[in-house]
Design a protein around this nucleic acid. Sequence first.
DNA 1: GCGACAG
DNA 2: ATCTTGTCGC
Length: 230
Amino acid sequence: MDIARDLHIPLDAEAAFQRQRELARELDLSSPTRPPRLIGAADVAYAKDGSDEAYAAVVVLERDTLRVIDRADWVGPPAFDYLPGLFALREAATLVEAFKKLSTRPDVVLIDGHGIAHPRRFGLACQLGLTFGVPTVGCAKKRLCGKAEPLGPLHGSRARVLDKGETIGYALRTQDGIKPVWVSPGNGYDHASAVDLIMSVRGEYRIPEPLRQAHNASVELRAAAVEANG
DNA sequence: GCGACAG
DNA sequence: ATCTTGTCGC
């Protein structure tokens, strides 16, 4: 799967900000044309010691069974230090390499981070959506920007996230009495479809099952590397 | 000027 | 993200 498009994101922070604003205009935020059957998810773990090593994992699950049917990974150094709002500079390249090794083409990929719920409306999920050429949805564990309206205590409760008068995403309760996750379109999705998708694969934990599997895969990848080396 | 700040 | 110490609950 080597259809990765080069977005030409500069490594200079200010130039990268500007490029994010440009690329945000290319996003397709309409509802997906067909219901997804194969759900991908991507996550990255990092070395516990100081070594500059990233462990990227992408998995593909069948939506009906929530079973993993494909996985791919990549290990190597991240290109950039983490900076809020420039998360993709650090994480995107590693996930692209893993994604290219996938033998299956998912209908949508869940990303551990924000989509348009981002200061310049171009979070990691947006960048990967354009790069992969596959629809993406962002599902973050914490808010980056904007303000959420109050939401109910039960699973399925949701509240708009507003930033500068604009709806940029939803806080979504995936389980009763558990902290919400933060859902926003990456590319090829609208708000309502993104929230519906997360609810349809929420599984039994706060983190939706595909992302939980991707997280496990990246952590296991790191464990295997420690096993092999030092 | 003072916080806030995906992973 | 990762580390850290203890605590609460199934």
